[in-house]
Structures are given as structure tokens and as C-alpha cells.
């Protein structure tokens, strides 16, 4: 795949798929979760709407699973191709480059585990997608800690990914615009982290 003629297309699509649809889905997901801070019934109502969307399997396949695992598997290949050197070159951008790869691996593992514990249990083992399913998982403090790491890690990966997407697609060219969007995407990281962590604590 990498050695072939389509490397350029794959890389551009890899960058794009992280934002649209995967990043957009992550944001919607965290917003839906946030309803739990209004109470169990509010969350169950919101989750119920998501579970009963029309053409659900089509939406899940093309908006979630195919782009998600294309991004994840190709991303692993990219992550392990780099020779991280923050020890010798401790510049802020180089740290963000390293963290982007680290959080990519964390998110891959976390999301796969999360899908196993929720989606797979609901589809194949008769669990019900409601407040109690999540509350049961994060009842264990280790699981809760891993969820917080997973959520903050994925949100970082998404926010920093917006910054690199803007460069990869040639939108932010000048150092000035790159600096501006570094601040904007950091803001996105902080806000989405707060939303995500407050939501998971709503289940604990």
C-alpha cells in the first residue's frame, strides 16, 4: 500500500477521515454523553434517539467503523514508521508530534476495548444500551481511570489532528495562521476534554 502509487491519496484521506467523519462523530458522541450530567433519564432519552436512527447499520458502517478502522490501522503504520527524537529535539512541536502518535496508539486500544464492552455486548450478547451499561463498566475505579485516559487521549489526538489536517490539506500555510490555529485547537482540546470527563464522571 505504502510503496504503491496511491500513497499520496491514502495519506490525504487518512488526514481527512480523522476529522470527517471520525472527529465529528467523536464530538457528537461526547455531546450525547454529556446529557448524563442532567440525569439518568436525560441520558437514556438521548441514547435512545441515537440507537433508533434510521438506516443505523449503514450509518454505523460508513460514518463510524470503516473510516475509523481505516484511520486507525493506517495510522498505526504511520506511527511506527517514525523514529521519535524528543530527547534530542525537545521543541514543543516535536512533543506534539510524539504525543499525536502516542495518543493514536492509546485511542486505538481504548476505542477497540470500548466497542467490545458496549457495542459488541449490545449487538451479540443481549445487553441494553442505557445508563446502567456504562455505569456498570466505570463502577470499577481502574476502568474509570482508563476511560478518563482514553477520552482525554482521543480528544488530544482529534484536536491536534485538526491542526495537522489544516497543514496537510494546505489550508494554513503562513506561520501566523498555524500559530492562530494552534491556539484554537488547544481550546478545542480543553473544552472537549471537560465535556468528555464530566460525562464519564456522571456515570461513576
Amino acid at each position: 500500500m505504502e510503496r504503491g502509487k496511491n500513497q499520496h491519496l491514502y495519506r490525504k484521506l487518512h488526514s481527512l477521515s480523522g476529522i470527517i467523519p471520525v472527529g465529528v462523530f467523536l464530538t457528537v458522541h461526547l455531546f450525547v454523553n454529556f446529557t448524563v450530567t442532567w440525569g439518568m433519564d436525560a441520558y437514556n432519552t438521548a441514547a435512545n434517539v441515537m440507537v433508533h436512527l434510521p438506516f443505523k447499520y449503514f450509518l454505523e458502517a460508513f460514518i463510524i467503523f470503516i473510516p475509523l478502522y481505516f484511520h486507525a490501522i493506517y495510522g498505526m503504520y504511520i506511527a511506527f514508521q517514525s523514529k521519535n527524537n524528543v530527547g534530542s529535539y525537545g521543541y514543543a512541536r516535536n512533543w506534539k508530534f510524539f504525543l499525536q502518535r502516542l495518543t493514536g496508539v492509546i485511542t486505538f486500544i481504548f476505542v477497540t476495548w470500548h466497542i467490545w464492552e458496549t457495542k459488541v455486548q449490545v449487538e451479540f450478547f443481549g445487553a441494553e444500551a442505557n445508563y446502567h451499561l456504562m455505569a456498570g463498566i466505570v463502577d470499577n475505579p481502574i476502568s474509570l481511570a482508563l476511560y478518563i485516559v482514553g477520552i482525554v487521549g482521543s480528544v488530544y489526538h482529534f484536536a491536534n489532528g485538526i491542526w495537522t489536517f489544516l497543514i496537510t490539506w494546505g489550508i494554513t500555510v503562513s506561520p501566523k495562521s498555524q500559530k492562530f490555529f494552534a491556539i484554537v485547537t488547544f481550546g478545542i482540546f480543553v473544552v472537549l476534554s471537560i465535556i468528555g470527563v464530566r460525562a464519564i464522571l456522571g456515570f461513576a
Binding site: 500513497q7 495519506r11 504511520i78 527524537n85 521543541y91 512541536r93 516535536n94
Partner: peptide
């Protein structure tokens, strides 16, 4: 090995 192999570390 072209441009998209850049990972924006900006070193």
C-alpha cells in the same frame, strides 16, 4: 516518500 510523508514535527 513525497510530501504527505511529512508528520509536521517542524524540527
Amino acid at each position: 516518500g513525497g510530501i504527505t510523508t511529512c508528520g509536521n514535527s517542524q524540527n
